[in-house]
Design a protein around this nucleic acid. Structure first.
Lengths: 224, 224, 224, 224
DNA sequence: GATGAATGAGGGTTCATTCAT
DNA sequence: AATGAATGAACCCTCATTCAT
């Protein structure tokens, strides 16, 4: 039994190695140029092994995306939980999440936006995570508004805020004509206007430990 | 001469057929899965003909994207020019452009976001058009602010506005969880807040003739 | 009738244009890179016209080769007829023929040696011309030997001489490590040894008019 | 270790199979008509495997030519080393080499003469081998001449001899109107004339073991 | 007669997948 | 479990040939 467990752990480790190698390959070679070959080279394992752990290449790409999205979600939770400020501060820092680190995987997400229309599972995952994210933001908006006795259309506010985040992120990735700091300033400004808060009271960078997530970790072993 | 002219017109028609077939194929199969085969099948013409009219597949993809962006730009100009309201109204309706029609090609832009990282020319075109678009919006913001004696950071305001548009557009395409009307409401709200205007004075739909651009025209023959 | 004649002459002219264009293309682009396209471009005529005058591309290549071999034969006859010396001199200059001009078509012949095994007609033409050539040389050897009262195996002598010519030609084309003059010296030496003649009496270059054939003419219009 | 060795041997065997199949295809279809298809058909292996063992088609053609030339060179060395006669005899038998066996691959060399003008590496290899061959022959001529106190232009003599060999070979392959024995007689006659030797003392066929090289071996498995 | 648009077979090559070892 | 040799479908592209004009 002990050995069996060990074997399964080993198997899981192999799977993880291949998943991480897939992400590395996507980052290094791009989406269309990532092949079974580049992935197996990146992993140091054989080509045949991929078929051993995954149904096919699409399956591996989907699992790798799931792994990546999980990391994004983990980072989001880390930031929200670590932030000591009240509802408003938590709201601000939670929407700042995409602009608090640079993983080098941003373009990859754009490729998955495209792939989503060919791989239904990717689209499902996307809508699931984005939906949960917007609901979360909406609840935070509600809490902050209630705290201040404000009445607002939280649905529209949540859409506005999350899509401002998405739009800033998209333009930042595609155009590289403004910075992550610009994005955080813009978000703070919009939030303060909505909630009558003073921007000065909320530093652009939250006073939390980002070392663990600052770089691409905890996408383990991806630092090269 | 008559024959030559007729022939050349015929040639242009063939080129257009292939371009439209390319856009259809991209919509249906995405960037990675659009091949010479899918395009020629979509066009009903032979595979070899593509090489007859275009240098290679990339060339066709780039030309097709140019064609699509040109249509987007044409529609943008049409809306701006037709709008009779002042600076503020023109600003509002110009950013509402992506939410005034449904061409059926929205996903395609996502595919090109992905393709941009494989085809430098696509990225160049994207940055060029988006850059010009943001500059245009910034000038309109300046004009409307000056008119009202307002002082604002037009650079940040332009980024906020254009990226709110992009984010709303992206979410609308990817998630289908809110409507184009929601988007226009959100944009009007943000603008009115910034410029102290009354939303009631600006109907969500501009009082202009959209028949020509309402559908996918003038992306001719794309209705299937 | 007059018109019909004119038409046929015109047709013949068109054929000749295409043949010459074929040879030009072969010289310029090589054998494998000569296509219907390069030939029609060289001729200034349309692609479709080739099918109008020739059964197919192979047919055109064969006819062009025939045309080229005819020119080689014409040049051979010209040299032999113009030479005023006796049997021996005529023999020497006749075998020197391949080393008296540089048409720029030498590599082309190598390609046809290869093509001969795929195009039976090319092999037939080759063997026919080379056979007649060797017979001609053998007769000249006989005449020169008889003149001097020498007895020799004219068959072996003819093979030796013609194949020495071919070998010198082949090495000259393939290796470019010796000159045409070297070839003529070698041939004169061998002949003088066989017939007891004095090399000094036979200048390396025959005292005949080569202007017409010096260059690639009379492959008309090939000078570019 | 045993397996690894076996695997690599197996790989080498596969490479050899593909090389031999390439030579067979070239013999059957010529250079222009030899495709990945004809080669894989000849080998009985799949098309994709060629890319597995060779960088591309040109690489395979070049390697195959190298393989063939190596065999020619091996046979040359075998004849020269095995021959027990003195300088003159070695000279005679070394130039007789092309006429001591019939591999069935003679036409192939003609195809490579053609291919040389498309594949620079083939031309380079050709010139390298032919150059070394002529130098070798020239040294033998020098040695035989020195032995007899003869003075001769060894450069011209070497060109004459090697090109007589090439010419005889070319005519034998292309025309099939004389025999390999004719060629050896001709070469012996020329050499004896040059060096004042008695042909009777040198049998047309050297008294050496040709069994190993008599047929196409060691071009293994080429007999069909 | 003459054109060149249109075709489609076949070229070399890539690559996901299979399977014997 | 792990390998990588082997496959063959599909990729983009070339080009000889056809045919409506």
């Amino acid at each position: 039994m002990k050995r069996a467990t060990k074997m399964r752990e080993s198997s899981e480790a192999r799977r993880a190695e291949l998943i991480v190698a897939t992400l590395k390959s996507l980052r290094k070679h791009g989406y269309v140029n990532s092949t079974i070959n580049t992935i197996s080279e990146e992993s140091g394992l054989s080509r045949g092994l991929i078929s051993h752990y995954f149904a096919n290449k699409d399956d591996l790409l989907i699992v790798a995306h799931k792994y990546y999205l999980q990391n994004v979600d983990d980072f989001f939770r880390h930031v929200v939980w670590s932030t000591k400020s009240g509802h408003f501060g938590k709201l601000f820092y939670s929407v700042s999440v995409p602009f608090l680190r640079d993983t080098g995987f941003e373009q990859m997400l754009v490729h998955y936006f495209s792939a989503a229309w060919m791989l239904p599972e990717v689209l499902r995952m996307h809508r699931n995570l984005w939906g949960r994210y917007r609901t979360n933001i909406r609840h935070r908006i509600s809490a902050a508004a209630r705290e201040r006795g404000l009445v607002m259309d939280t649905r529209l506010a949540a859409i506005t805020l999350t899509q401002l985040v998405d739009g800033l992120w998209l333009g930042w990735v595609m155009e590289e004509s403004y910075t992550q700091e610009d994005c955080r300033i813009i978000l703070r400004k919009w939030l303060c206007e909505q909630f009558g808060e003073d921007p000065q009271k909320y530093p652009l960078t939250p006073d939390i430990d980002l070392t663990l997530f600052k770089t691409s970790a905890p996408l383990p072993h991806i630092e090269d």
